[in-house]
């Protein structure tokens, strides 16, 4: 057979015959979530010293993980244009200013702790993840441990938390956008020819 053996027509329909079908992307993510549900008990550490105290003999690992988590926090934490917006979400005096490479400044919540996970492929610790919390009464994150993507891991008083296999996956980097529209100018200049369908494929 020289053609595709099977195509799931339901997934190809843009208008369902019966409206209630959910878009596949949601279904897939649910599937992915259920299939990634193996959990592990992990500790949140306030800082490197907290980590060393609870893991005698792991000074170096704690130091490295703490530094890495801090660097990761700068990249992935939620970012705000001004201090007020940040404090509204994360609480008074819980936001630090951040100086971007372009000289502009913005605000992000301070790292409240970090997670350390056992390496999957050897002894010692392999994964880290910055954790945040909120002290704001108006925030849904109040007194919760959350990761940079906003997922909650339970009450802040609880240091032992259950992680999932995707807890340690890298969170998307949030960057301050300086400009837009740097791609597309040649297409727009050429499109005055207009007789074509207007696409840029061929």
């Amino acid at each position: 057979m020289k053609r595709t053996k099977h195509i799931s027509l339901n997934n190809m329909r843009k208008k369902t015959r019966r409206q209630q079908l959910k878009p596949l992307s949601l279904l897939v993510s649910t599937l992915l979530l259920t299939s990634c549900s193996s959990t592990e008990q992990t500790q949140v550490y306030r800082d490197e010293f907290d980590c060393m105290e609870k893991n005698p003999g792991m000074q170096e690992e704690c130091k490295t993980a703490f530094a890495n988590a801090q660097a990761e926090a700068v990249k992935t934490a939620p970012k705000f244009e001004n201090r007020n917006d940040c404090e509204e979400m994360f609480g008074r005096n819980n936001c630090t200013s951040y100086q971007g490479s372009s000289g502009s400044s913005w605000f992000m919540p301070a790292m409240a702790g970090f997670l350390l996970g056992r390496a999957l492929d050897g002894p010692g610790f392999g994964h880290y993840q910055p954790m945040f919390t909120s002290y704001s009464y108006r925030s849904p994150y109040r007194d919760r441990w959350i990761t940079a993507d906003g997922r909650s891991y339970g009450n802040r008083m609880q240091k032992n938390i259950r992680t999932r296999t995707d807890t340690f996956k890298r969170k998307p980097v949030i960057a301050k956008t300086l400009s837009r529209g740097g791609f597309g100018s040649i297409a727009s200049a050429k499109s005055k020819w207009g007789s074509s369908r207007g696409g840029w494929g061929g």
Partner: peptide, 17 residues
């Protein structure tokens, strides 16, 4: 046309990701 240029010379989406 909506692709952005963000700090650290990354390209960003409309949510600054």
């Amino acid at each position: 046309e909506d692709i952005g240029h963000g700090e650290g010379d990354v390209f960003t989406d409309l949510n600054n990701q």
